[in-house]
Design a protein around this nucleic acid. Structure first.
Length: 301
DNA sequence: AGTTGTGTTGAAGA
DNA sequence: ATCTTCAACACAAC
């Protein structure tokens, strides 16, 4: 029998955004100080070295023997800094999960454990000295792992808008950001990772509900006080979601019995046809930026 | 059983 | 250049 999962970041009903990634990063802290003994992958399309395609061989060559110095988050990306100026950027995209304390040999992974829904989507594995392994499971295989020199981290992604928990993020900063896409709908801007990093489809709807702003509003039409309210709502909702360990955990419980609970307090997301929690008006669904968007037509102006 | 919805990112198209 | 559309993929729900 395979070793029990210590943590399992559950399937794709919801997708990892900033709060889920922060929750994962917090849980991964136990790996600090551990070192890499090997690397395995059966989906090399996901592997990048700097900005080029890479291979599991190259990954193993670079990573083997490296010590994990720190694990951080930027936007929706997980940053792992190793010794010798090496870093890995892990992006879970839609369905990526990181599994800890699992023990599966690579030859078994090769066979894909076809009957085991918990291991059949593992595509990459970092083997570790103390903690056995860190496995990357990814149903849709959109996830990406980029290795780069720590010094060159800033070059790895175009999606490096300001993180809402950056100390420089405030109303004035958000105002500047809105000026860059004046004609766009506010919800599109919230989800534009090159402007603000970390907000995805779920929290965009929840934040705009909290700020009482209609998601279709054009950026340039927002008044100063609305931008200020929006700034506060961004931080407030994301902080609350982190406190609740995110939304992307449904039936899984980790070894201490905890699971994400933010889905229990969602106000508008996936609530079309139901009464608004503030004013009883029926919540509506529209498509903005090709994605489902939920809002109350009465209290979001 | 075939079609659709899911939603992140970056490349391709307009 | 700047905007929009689409492909990468697997699976649940209709």
């Amino acid at each position: 029998m395979t070793t029990v999962f210590a943590f399992r970041f559950k399937f794709f009903t919801f997708v990892p955004e900033l709060p889920e990634v922060q929750t994962i990063v917090n849980d991964l802290q136990i790996l600090t100080g551990d070192s890499i003994t090997g690397f395995w992958s059966d989906w090399e399309k996901a592997l990048r070295f700097e900005n080029k395609k890479s291979t599991k061989k190259e990954f193993e060559k670079i990573l083997k023997g490296k010590k994990i110095k720190e694990i951080k988050r930027y936007g929706k990306s997980i940053l792992i800094n190793f010794s010798s100026n090496v870093s890995a950027v892990v992006h879970l995209r839609m369905t990526g999960q990181l599994l800890l304390k699992l023990q599966v040999e690579s030859y078994k992974l090769q066979a894909k454990f076809q009957q085991d829904k918990y291991t059949k989507h593992i595509h990459h594995v970092f083997y570790l000295k103390k903690n056995k392994m860190l496995a990357f499971s990814d149903i849709r295989k959109f996830g990406v792992i980029t290795i780069t020199k720590t010094n060159d981290l800033h070059l790895t992604s175009k999606t490096r808008g300001i993180d809402p928990f950056d100390q420089h993020f405030n109303g004035k900063k958000l105002e500047e950001v809105l000026l860059k896409r004046k004609k766009s709908k506010i919800k599109e801007i919230l989800m534009d990772q090159s402007l603000i990093s970390g907000i995805g489809n779920i929290y965009a709807s929840e934040i705009l509900f909290d700020a009482k702003i209609n998601p279709s509003r054009i950026a340039s039409s927002l008044h100063k006080n609305e931008i200020l309210a929006l700034t506060k709502s961004i931080v407030k909702i994301l902080e609350k979601a982190i406190k609740f360990r995110g939304t992307s955990f449904s039936d899984y419980r980790d070894s201490s019995g905890k699971k994400g609970r933010f889905q229990n307090i969602l106000k508008v997301y996936k609530k079309a046809g139901q009464k608004c929690k503030r004013c009883d008006t029926i919540v509506k669904k529209v498509i903005i930026g090709q994605r489902s968007t939920f809002y109350c037509p009465k209290c979001q102006k």
